[in-house]
Amino acid sequence: MNGRIVDFQKSPHQATQELLPWFANGTLDADERSSLATHLESCAECRQELEALRRLQTAYVAGEVTADVESALARLWQNMPPQSIEPAPADAATAEEALSLSAAHESRSPASRSSRGSPSLSFQAALEHAPARATATSSRNSNLPWRGNSRRTSLFGMALAAQFGVIVALGWALWTWQSAPTRFHALGAAQSPTRATGDAIIVFAPDVEERRMRRILEDASARIVDGPTAANGYVIRFDRGDVDEAITRLSGDPAVHLVVRLRPGDGS
């Protein structure tokens, strides 16, 4: 007996109607059950209501949970923040859950009000009262994966920092590579960084055909390496033979208007 009795400030019929759901689920204490049973014997309306409640309960409990507990549990561990278990608060009433639960207890019944003011017993307090057991439990759990969590968290942080460092280094290398002066130069660029060097500059007569120009250069074993210049001259290089002799020979050709020997450094 826990001191709970049917409130007969209400009529027995009203009190019975109020408690019928818990009569149907079998959780009333002996006094309440006895009081309701007495009323039910004489009240057809309450008996009918009780039968309806039992049918409702039967229909209501149908259905099973089909969710996968293991995958849900795996996701819980995956999302578990790296935080150790919180110790019991010095005053259990400061804990969020303990606070509301204690408040509910105190407002619930005279029986629970009788314990008001007495500190609640938490597992943490129990562990403090049983140091030997606590030590044994702690030792037993030291091999559990969870117990090494803070160390794993530290390693994870270091790995994360190393990854960040590599990313920064790669970013720096990419930036410096992109900002370095390019060695590539388009063939059509006006200013070549390394101008072609030749042995002489040749200016053909204005009316000389291209085929004639090509024959003259072939006979002199020369080839054009640059030009035309602003004065319509071409820089040529001699592949073999004496340069001065070749220049002399070229200068005697009527199709050649001018040939000038280039000295080292003239073309740069």
Partner: peptide, 13 residues
Amino acid sequence: LVVWRKAASFTAQ
């Protein structure tokens, strides 16, 4: 998660 964190503050009430 609350159960895991606050198990020590469970009151035997």
